[in-house]
Design a protein around this nucleic acid. Structure first.
Lengths: 152, 152
DNA sequence: CTCCTTTAGTGGACATAGTCAACAATTAAT
DNA sequence: ATTAATTGTTGACTATGTCCACTAAAGGAG
């Protein structure tokens, strides 16, 4: 045991706490007719387009086959289109259609509103401090995330 | 739009980031023969015992029926025992058996090790600062979590 | 080039996780 | 006393995720 017990307990407490926060947020991105996972895929395509399925798989840490099925569904629904890549004939370049972009925008707006509601009641100073704390945590842990993924 | 766009974007970015962190951690609590959800239930019983099913449902934000099935399984496996409550005949007081307490301890140790690994490479000062940032975020968002749950 | 290995995507079959509606028993409220 | 709300259970279902086998194309190594 190299670390103070209290620190670990506090961090585990924070993880439980933040699990709940994320749970509340995720639960209410819905109501678009798409599931949470589908919505996450649409959002990620919106951020990365054009992209290939495998990039989405890695980014969202999902199973290939699962992603394949979701992409099929979204394509059938007219939210995205695939263009076979000139560089690698195994892959397709994926882009949102106008209809997909519309959903993307809707999801973004809802997410933004959720964050605003989450911060409602805090002063501008407090909000700035929360943001700084998040950026700080991220800066300290983000190389570690990679390292841990690699080691597994 | 009352808030600076950048702040919301940063917070959403942090949420995506921390979703991944929690995903990595959760993926490897396993290997005890129990699923993540079952493990969470065992942990929560360990923290709260004696408790009733409904408290676990609220704490872990799970469906009643799902919890009922998990509790049945854990009981069948000899990890917990139910004593019918003298105060309310609808409910049972739930406690870990010695075997359940053993798993509880194992889960706790693993979780602690994971956090240590997550912090590995940071200086004591950095670790302290990360902890402070987490406590700060929690203190600011704490009451809000409740308020949001209620309003929904 | 040819042979071998790796990578990207797909589909079938399955396993796990979570949800919904109906119900019985009990307790709380009016 | 009657009605309403709570607790837990079960069946049926949907959503989510995993595993395996397979095809097709790239990327080497010789």
């Amino acid at each position: 045991m190299s670390l103070d017990e209290g620190i670990i307990a506090d961090i585990r407490q924070f993880n439980r706490f933040y699990t709940n926060i994320l749970g509340v947020l995720n639960k209410h991105v819905l109501d678009t007719g798409y599931t949470l996972t589908e919505a996450r895929v649409v959002l990620e395509i919106g951020f990365m387009e054009p992209c290939i399925a495998n990039q989405l798989v890695e980014k969202l840490d999902m199973d290939r086959s699962y992603m394949s099925r979701i992409i099929s569904k979204l394509q059938k629904d007219g939210l995205l289109e695939k263009e076979s890549s000139p560089l690698d004939n195994r892959t397709s370049l994926i882009r949102l259609t106008p209809k997909g972009a519309e959903l993307f925008q809707q999801l973004n707006e809802r997410s933004d509103e959720q964050i605003e509601r989450l911060l409602d009641g805090l002063s501008p100073t407090e909000i700035t401090e929360v943001r700084s704390s998040m950026l700080f945590i991220q800066s300290k842990m983000n190389r570690l995330e990679r390292a841990q993924n690699d080691s597994i």
